[in-house]
Write a protein that binds this DNA or RNA. Sequence first.
DNA 1: GTCTATAATCAGATAGAC
DNA 2: GTCTATCTGATTATAGAC
Lengths: 201, 201
Amino acid sequence: MPSARRLGSPDAKNRSVLLDAAEQLMLEEGYAAVSARRVAARAGLKHQLVHYYFRTMDDLLLDVFRRRAEEGLERQAKALASDQPLRALWEYSTDRAGTVLTMEFAGLANHRKAIRAEIARYAEKFRAAQLEALPGILDRYGLCSDDCPPVVMTVLLTGLSRVVAMEQTIGISTGHTEALAWVERHLQQLEGDPKSRTDDR
Amino acid sequence: MPSARRLGSPDAKNRSVLLDAAEQLMLEEGYAAVSARRVAARAGLKHQLVHYYFRTMDDLLLDVFRRRAEEGLERQAKALASDQPLRALWEYSTDRAGTVLTMEFAGLANHRKAIRAEIARYAEKFRAAQLEALPGILDRYGLCSDDCPPVVMTVLLTGLSRVVAMEQTIGISTGHTEALAWVERHLQQLEGDPKSRTDDR
DNA sequence: GTCTATAATCAGATAGAC
DNA sequence: GTCTATCTGATTATAGAC
């Protein structure tokens, strides 16, 4: 077992520079473009440093994912705890960059087992957090919702935000404005007009 | 311009054998696994034949996509013309292999312009066909649907089927049975129990 | 921490014989 | 149509000098 090899410390500056470069590359050109050489080039570093900080490329990809996911969990929690929770959750869910990255990782998961498990783990975390908060919120709005329980709503709106984000990046547009307006109508009805700009990123 | 090179005829047997192999590979291991060598190996042929029948790998990928898309358009048209059109459309939309391939191509489209345009073109075709048929169908069922117009329904259900298919392949399951049951409840209410097995593929 | 150098694979694509 | 052979370039990863 060759794990005696050296590894850079987790809080080194260049480490996060490489993570940034990998994430950006993934966003713009897809996971297939994330090679050690291209990541390093974008970060202005030598490609060997990638292997110094991350033993394998899978390790790098996993760290990019985890960093995003942890930040996302916090953002989602803050949204759910805000005074317009549904609107805030929707705004978070429709974040373009976040959704595109999620889809890219989902594609990656199709053929890399190590990554698949981690993605599934976090995805369930996201959904569980939503399901813990939603019933209380909907109750407060007087939605007993026998027809469409919270868990269905969650899956439905996840799908909607994903498909719109995905289609936007490809160049498909039919029905998007109508679908977004439909959501907005319901948000408006439940929580009124948007009160604050929650773009604190 | 070196386009003087030879190319195999479009209806040769080995050509479709290669298309089959590429599609299968894409389904099982993702588009990144579709290399000339791996496709050929799976087809029991030499990798040079890939370049004989398809000048470039993009050409191969595009042909895989077009073949699937054309078949899909026919299947969707047949579904929309059946006596339980909504149920048939839903069954078609939730076809696991079809959805996974669609997502794989969508990922591919993120970083290959030539493929992106073709995918967008076909996606709009699919949606347009749905939008031509849906209003009549919903009218017949007495759904004036001021709240949720057909185009919104289309986008919403596309998103739902995609997210469920994607999450199933990764191993996420929370909310799936509930969401599918929710759709089934509405289908049941509008079109009653499933009449025929429409699995003629 | 960062470098040079290198090993071992795999990729796409073409030329030309048969 | 299918083959052998080959060119060219990219990839991951490691060893070891500085």
